[in-house]
Design a protein around this nucleic acid. Structure first.
Length: 654
DNA sequence: GGGGGAAGGACCA
DNA sequence: TTCCTGGTCCTTCCCCC
């Protein structure tokens, strides 16, 4: 930016993934593609957001450069010693005894569509729509059209482009046909997607006394005969290299890298780092602009700087890439860690529309979870604003949930705290699954009594091992075993009234689950919760009188005693302080303060209430310094860019 | 200081 | 006029013990 050449060609500074060479795109006029992508994008909110992200990366690069400049000769020789030691250790772990084959179906979705509709053959075609393309055939790739490109840009690059909608049933069917072939060569093959797999063919080569080249050829022929589709394969001593190799002779080709260190080092030396799985656009730019690293050989030559600038895990990963090392064993079966559903729509701030979308997504997620017998404890709401800024807000519950009603109830509360906002995407993700998929109750969940007594929920034989629900107006003493133990202060209860899960999924249950959800990050003030969930309040129930001296609680009493509501959703009815709805923590602390104040009046012991007040005062002071926790990030604030984010996982490979 | 939750980001197909 | 979906893993920040 800023140079005359860039002024003439502003698109050159707009880096997108679309100019990265993909199979079948070798002859593409990259500058033309870059210019058209730039011209179609510029001025849009997406473009502005990309620019913002680019600016962050530039700052990161500048910061790393400054760190390099500060290194003395002594520092460099120190880090060189560390790098040398690591290289020796990594080299000692090199395993050349395995033969891995990576197979990748050629333009899979597009090939399936062409197989079923031969009239598409020879014509530029893309699977997807005007908003986004899933994949493009090789005829379209000649124009620069590729996966992950918006369809309207693809249309500009290739006006005759034919669009075919995605049909996952078809792709799954053909994928299964291919997998039948894979199983014959490796029953434990690793499937990474519908069209890709890793096969350990070591045994096949030994038992049948044939070369890996012959196995690859045989496998490709078998796949073609049984599916009518072509694939490309790569053979190498580890998974990382096999994946790189399968891309070399695409489409319908294969590349064999011998299990020989010298051959590997020769192969890797000129390999662009971007070809390595785990090195994407950002890492490529950072390594190139900070250290001038472009090939894997460059990595080894910059070992000292990599050790100086990056975490141990990251530098280990980089060095292992430079040595051509990768995983050589079949990983253990991985359990799913999360399940999610998200929808993009035209940006809007219409709250009715947004809550309806949220309900639709909650239903989809709930259905998916039921289908897979999953029940989760952590719900994450993902929002993409009209300006493409992505926000996530998570809530961890005391028990696992899966029903639409429970999901929607939690999600609505988080969303409400974020509004008003113009959004273009809403997503919900559930994680922290219960081990026992048939149980929808978290065994770790403590009953309120166990919580109050500081004991384990399961340790008391007299306590019901189920969630205790209170009706509005109930006193805790009305329930078996629900009394406060001696010395137990009421403030020990961080009350978070939630919609009860009665395990039947009934809507509009007028009871509240009185759970001690102290870990709930978005637990709200009592008043707020009541306000937000007022549809669950049953006003027909008569209030129950409460003796002031009794150490008992009723839900209504808390509200009455504290008397705190947020007038106009903004002003504290007790003291008049103004706190916006999205100041969740502050509001919670604020209601804590008033609660403590109330308790202070009625309890003979003042200690804990005083502590709560102190806590509030400290917190307010803290917040006034502008260190509010991750609620909003100023646009001009330098954000952390976790360049190393991807690398630790490779550590175990080496 | 360590553990764990939350938030954000990079990357992949 | 228009830039997806679903998943994993990692780091940093922050709070709590």
């Amino acid at each position: 930016m800023g140079t005359s050449s860039e002024g003439d060609r502003p698109w050159q500074s707009y880096n997108t993934v679309y100019t990265n060479a993909k199979a079948g795109m070798d002859g593409v006029d990259k500058e033309k593609v870059q210019r058209i992508v730039y011209e179609m994008s510029k001025g849009s909110k997406y473009f502005e957001n990309e620019k913002r992200k680019e600016a962050f990366i530039k700052l990161k690069i500048e910061s790393l450069r400054a760190q390099v400049d500060k290194l003395t000769d002594k520092d460099v020789s120190h880090f060189q010693m560390i790098a040398n030691k690591k290289i020796l250790e990594l080299e000692a772990s090199r395993d050349l005894s395995k033969v891995w084959l990576h197979t990748d179906m050629d333009a899979f979705y597009a090939a399936v569509e062409t197989l079923e509709n031969p009239s598409l053959r020879g014509k530029p075609m893309a699977v997807g729509g005007l908003s986004m393309i899933s994949t493009a055939n090789y005829e379209a790739r000649k124009f620069g059209v590729r996966a992950a490109m918006p369809g309207f840009i693809a249309c500009k690059l290739c006006p005759d482009l034919i669009f075919v909608p995605t049909n996952f049933e078809k792709y799954t069917f053909y994928s299964e046909l291919a997998r039948k072939v894979f199983r014959r060569y490796d029953p434990d093959f690793i499937s990474t997607s519908l069209d890709e797999a890793y096969l350990n063919i070591t045994e096949v080569c030994i038992n049948r006394e044939i070369s890996s080249d012959e196995v690859a050829c045989e496998l490709r022929n078998a796949i073609f005969e049984e599916t009518g589709l072509t694939c490309s394969t790569g053979v190498a001593p580890n998974l990382m290299l096999a994946k790189v190799c399968s891309d070399i002779n695409k489409p319908n080709g294969q590349f064999i890298l011998p299990n020989d260190r010298k051959a590997i080092m020769t192969f890797i030396s000129s390999l662009p780092i971007r070809k390595i799985g785990g090195i994407g656009k950002v890492t490529e730019n950072v390594l190139r602009d900070v250290l001038g690293i472009q090939t894997c050989e460059d990595i080894l030559q910059n070992g000292a700087f990599l050790c100086a600038l990056f975490s141990s895990c990251s530098s280990d990963f980089f060095l292992s890439v430079g040595l051509g090392l990768g995983r050589t064993d079949t990983p253990d079966i991985k359990m799913r860690k999360s399940i999610s559903s998200e929808r993009t729509f035209r940006a809007t701030s219409d709250e009715n529309f947004l809550f309806q979308k949220l309900a639709d997504i909650a239903e989809t997620l709930s259905n998916d979870m039921k289908e897979k017998c999953l029940s989760g404890r952590t719900l994450t709401l993902k929002l993409k604003t009209a300006s493409f800024e992505v926000r996530t807000r998570a809530i961890s519950l005391q028990k696992c949930i899966h029903s639409k009603e429970d999901i929607l109830s939690c999600a609505s509360r988080i969303l409400k705290a974020e509004l008003p906002l113009s959004l273009r995407l809403i997503g919900l993700r559930m994680s922290q699954f219960s081990d026992d998929k048939n149980s929808h109750v978290d065994p770790m969940q403590k009953s309120i009594v166990a919580f109050l007594s500081g004991g384990d929920a399961n340790s008391s034989p007299t306590l019901p091992k189920k969630q205790v629900c209170l009706e509005v107006g109930d006193k805790l003493e009305d329930h078996d075993g629900l009394d406060f133990s001696e010395g137990q202060s009421k403030q020990d209860v961080e009350l978070d009234f939630r919609v009860a899960d009665d395990h039947t999924g009934d809507k509009n249950d007028d009871r509240f689950s009185l759970l001690c959800d102290s870990h709930c990050s978005v637990s709200r003030s009592i008043a707020e919760n009541f306000k937000m969930n007022d549809s669950y309040l049953d006003e027909s129930k008569p209030n129950k009188s409460v003796e002031p001296d009794e150490l008992t609680y009723s839900v209504e009493r808390l509200i009455e005693e504290v008397g705190l509501i947020w007038v106009d959703d903004y002003i504290c009815s007790v003291c008049g302080i103004e706190l916006p709805p999205n100041f969740i923590e502050e509001r919670r602390e604020h209601s804590d303060y008033h609660l403590a104040e109330m308790l202070q009046k009625e309890e003979s012991s003042r200690g804990r209430a005083h502590l709560a007040q102190e806590r509030f005062v400290r917190k307010v002071g803290h917040n006034r310094e502008g260190t509010r926790k991750k609620q909003k990030c100023p646009p001009n604030e330098v954000k952390h860019i976790p360049i190393e984010a991807f690398f630790t996982k490779y550590k175990k490979n080496s």
